[in-house]
Design a protein around this nucleic acid. Structure first.
Lengths: 149, 149
DNA sequence: CTACACCTTGAAGTCGGCTTCAAGTCAAGG
DNA sequence: CCTTGACTTGAAGCCGACTTCAAGGTGTAG
């Protein structure tokens, strides 16, 4: 046994090999040894990838995950690293949830409004008819996330 | 008075003129009359834009907003159009909120875990130590939304 | 005439996290 | 020797909603 090929790692983790190469280039996965120019991974990489995917699922960007993996002194335990990043992320998530909740309310306000045409409806303007759906968007959208292949 | 220039509309609505042109090309705002090749908008466009921005703020994509504005028979009232689109969007938002809430839980599980290194932590694998942070991500991320200039 | 402010267009750039493609390398099997 | 299959690379494409850029037109003021 001289290490896993990238295809083997892909099979074991359910990931595309292109993603593994991408993470390596992005400085997240350390470059493995090579045999004849081909990557040979230590079996431990599977666990690293599990942590990576977990962090991604928790909402961390690759930038943040790079920090999680390589951005602290080598002696800093994983738990402490996680904690250092978690508070900001929790606040981001709370903001996201709050925003999504406001969007829900906006949609319901739109349902309650019952306008006939664009020109007799709506907000944003002090001379507006009544209690139309309210003001501006402020935060345009929320993008969807890609599935896992 | 022969209509508002695009710059004037931008000023009144707080939008970049590039956005107005983009929406026109995207088939959302109808092309206005022109004088010497320049767009001259009817004052009513301001209200259209308010509705557009409101819908955007409620989470609708430009595709959906195009449907909202131009995708029904001309006799269909705005309220009915809104309703036709609202139910799916509410479900999407609920899914989003649920996902964000799961992400919150994941982060908190990570905080409770207290692992020292990547190799002694984590999930996804049946031989894992204990009740590590749990399984996979399934839905990678949530993208941030751009502010309103 | 020049300067200036405003408008026009199409093409390309931005962000994140990949995927896809073209072209090439390499080892094992028939 | 030739094919097959897995690997390598860099470059480009994708999604959404725009912004930015280059190059040029037009109207008005001084």
């Amino acid at each position: 046994m001289d290490g896993l090929t990238i295809g083997e790692v892909g099979r074991r983790t359910g990931l595309a090999t292109s993603a593994l190469r991408y993470w390596e280039r992005a400085g997240i996965l350390p470059p493995p040894l090579r045999q004849n120019g081909q990557r040979r991974y230590d079996a431990g990489v599977v666990r690293w990838i599990a942590v990576l995917r977990f962090a991604q699922g928790a909402g961390f960007t690759l930038d943040e995950i790079r920090t999680l993996f390589h951005g602290f002194g080598a002696e800093t335990p994983l738990g402490a690293r996680w904690e250092a990043l978690a508070h900001d992320k929790l606040r981001e998530l709370d903001a996201l949830i709050a925003r999504a909740t406001r969007m829900r309310h906006a949609i319901e306000a739109g349902l309650a409004c019952g306008c006939v045409s664009v020109d007799d409806c709506m907000a944003g303007d002090p001379s507006a008819p009544a209690d139309g759906p309210a003001q501006a968007p402020a935060q345009p959208a929320l993008r969807r996330a890609g599935g896992t292949r």
